[in-house]
Each structure stands twice: as C-alpha cells, then as structure tokens.
C-alpha cells in the first residue's frame, strides 16, 4: 500500500513537470500551428541557466525566474529570427526547429559538459514532509512542484480566458486574417506567445533540475513527453495538456514500478488507444 502511494505521488510529480513542459508546447501549437521541436532544448537551457544563477547568487527563486526568462528570450529569438519567416509552411517550420534543437543541444553540451546537474534547494523546500491522512513522508520540493504546476495552470487559464491579451490569442486561433485586418500586430503576438511558451519550458527546466536532475538527453525526454501529452490530451488545449500529463505521468511511474522493463509500453499504449478512439486527442477539437 505504501509502495502504491509513493508510486502515485511520484506519478503526480512527473505529471506536474510534464504539464509545465507541455503547456507551453501546446500553447504555441494552438496559436501558430507550429510544432516546436526545440521545446525540449528550451527547457534544458532554462534548467542550465537556472542552475548557474542559483550557484552564483544562492537564490532559488532568482534561478527559476532567470531560467524562465533565458528560455523565453531564446524562444522569442527562434520565432522572430527563423520560424516567423516561414509562417504557414508547417513542415518547413518543423524541420527548422529540429535544426535549431540540434544546434542548441550541441552548444549546451559544449558549454555545460555532459555532467548531471541538480539545483541546490533552499532550506524551505529541502527535506521531507509527513503527509497527513496518508501517513507517508514525501520530499517537500516535489509537493511544492505539484503546487507550482497547479498555480501555473490556473494562471494560464486566467491569462487566456480572462484578460485582454488572452482574448487576442483566442481570436487569433479562430481567425488570424480577420485579426490582422483589424490592425493587430499578429507577428508581435506570435513572438510574445513563443516567449511565453519558452518561459514556461525554462521554468519547468529549473524545477526539473531541482526535483530531479538534468543532463544532456533531458531535452529529448521532455520533448517526447510533451508530444505524447498533447497527442493524448488534444493539441492546443491547456486542460487537455493537464489531463494528458496526468495520464502519461501516472502510467510511466506505475509502469516503472510494476513492469520495469516494459514501462515505456504503457505510455505508448495510452497514445495508441487515444488515437484509435479520438484522433484529435481527449479534449482536442476535430480538425477536418
């Protein structure tokens, strides 16, 4: 029973991380139809920068913000410098973002080396916490991570559903040409949303480096999870990203605990099952 509880909590931790990573990916896809293959690289960049900032200043909060800003800036540069020029040609954008992710991964390997990094935690988040009712001890940072994901989810929902900027994003998803015609600077909005998605990825990277650890290859792991999460949850839907992240994170941890050498198969099976029943994802809108 304790094992089951711990595995469930681990699954929720992972789901929280996957949601943080996938929400930015899904946001960008929903607005621009761009499959940003460099999303994992942005996440890793955020993690590395966050680590360096925490090492230099000793402030964890500063690390999370700095990592997020660095990845957000990189995302804005990617959209404004390369992908924006190919708007509308999705295959070309995908290929270009793959090229960017290869270059970024290689340059990061150059600068930070092949080491595994773990961000040092502030006293407040270090150590464990005995959970009431369940009666098991669990790492505080992981609990904080779940709270962080929840808060991010709510903030995103608020931004998109309740603010003027969110209304512009939603209008742009529905009818880009009309928005352009009534004078909205759509290219600037694209860059902003790309920066927002990159920032989410970068913060997820720092948090991942705190709760788990990061190393070359982390980018691929989170790119895969983001892909599966949005395929399962539905492309461009924040709620779908949350649902997909929950399913994938839990499946991965249960798989790891109860069928160690076939863990990935569970994730894969969920994806295949969803595609067979609802090709547009659980909460996605039908395309055709």
């Amino acid at each position: 029973m304790t094992l089951f509880l711990i595995v469930t909590l681990n699954g929720l931790t992972l789901a929280a991380l996957y949601f943080l990573a996938a929400s930015g990916f899904s946001l960008i896809f929903g607005l621009m139809r761009t499959v940003n293959m460099a999303h994992g690289a942005l996440l890793l960049l955020g993690g590395y920068v966050g680590y360096s900032i925490v090492e230099a200043t000793g402030s964890w909060g500063l690390g999370v913000v700095g990592g997020g800003l660095a990845a957000g800036l990189a995302g804005a540069i990617v959209q404004a410098g390369v992908l924006g020029w190919m708007q509308g040609d999705e295959l070309r954008q995908t290929l270009a973002s793959i090229a960017i992710s290869i270059i970024m991964a290689d340059l990061m390997l150059w600068h930070w080396g092949g080491l595994t990094y773990q961000v040092e935690l502030p006293d407040l988040l270090a150590g464990g916490h005995r959970l009431p009712v369940l009666g098991v001890g669990y790492a505080t940072i992981r609990l904080a991570l779940m709270g962080f994901a929840l808060a991010t989810g709510v903030a995103l929902w608020f931004l998109i559903q309740r603010t003027r900027f969110g209304a512009v994003i939603r209008a742009s998803v529905d009818d880009q040409d009309m928005l352009r015609a009534i004078g909205y600077p759509i290219n600037r909005i694209f860059v902003l949303v790309f920066a927002l998605g990159g920032m989410l990825a970068g913060m997820a990277g720092v948090v991942a480096a705190s709760a788990l650890s990061i190393a070359p290859g982390t980018d691929l792991q989170f790119l895969l999870s983001s892909l599966v999460v949005v395929i399962v949850g539905g492309m461009g839907s924040i709620g779908g990203a949350a649902l997909g992240a929950l399913l994938v994170g839990l499946a991965e941890q249960y798989g790891l605990a109860y069928a160690p050498t076939y863990g990935v198969v569970f994730t894969f099976a969920i994806m295949v099952l969803v595609l067979a029943v609802r090709p547009q994802g659980l909460m996605g809108k039908a395309e055709l």
Partner: peptide, 24 residues
Amino acid sequence: RSRGIYAIMITLAIGVAFFYFTRQ
C-alpha cells in the same frame, strides 16, 4: 488518421518510445 504535422508528431513519438523501450 493523421496527416501533416500530426503524423510527424505521432511517428516521432513512436520512434522515441521505441528507443526508450530498447534501452529498458
């Protein structure tokens, strides 16, 4: 049932999942 970028995402997910599977 998937075309364009959706097919890319699904086949990439299949390829990477197979990679992790051979590893485990």
